[in-house]
């Protein structure tokens, strides 16, 4: 049974259980964010400390290199910016309103 945001009470699984494993990925926790991590590719050394520490697995990595941030799920906790080595400082937290692409789909 596929539960969608507009599923009515009659069609929900009994007892409030979730019967689709991994469905948390469909929950856009990114819209909770007030500060957005922005990463400077030129400064980043791909040490992957942010990837290890991100509680929402929102640092996207391919072949050992960071390819971007998953803004659909990133809640803007700022841990990535905090653990980015002080000499590098590749990740800055920017208020959503001031970020160039804060509106619209993530």
């Amino acid at each position: 049974m596929k539960v969608k945001p507009d599923t009515g009470w009659r069609d929900l699984p009994c007892g409030g259980v979730i019967v689709e494993p991994g469905s948390a990925a469909e929950y856009p926790t990114g819209d909770w964010r007030t500060y957005r991590p922005t990463r400077d590719e030129n400064k980043c050394t791909n040490c992957l400390l942010c990837w290890i520490c991100c509680p929402d697995s929102s640092i996207m990595v391919e072949d050992g290199r960071i390819i971007g941030i998953d803004y659909k799920h990133c809640k803007g906790c700022g841990i990535c910016a905090q653990v980015c080595p002080p000499k590098i400082k590749a990740i800055m937290m920017v208020e959503e309103e001031r970020s160039s692409s804060s509106k619209g789909p993530m």
Partner: peptide, 29 residues
């Protein structure tokens, strides 16, 4: 049993976070 946790072929989550977008429907059900 309905939705038993010990059924290793079907993965079930009991008691998940259930906020204003679904909680009301669950109570009505």
């Amino acid at each position: 049993p309905v939705n038993p946790l010990l059924d290793t072929d079907r993965f079930i989550t009991y008691g998940p976070l259930d906020l204003y977008d679904f909680y009301f429907e669950h109570k009505r059900q």
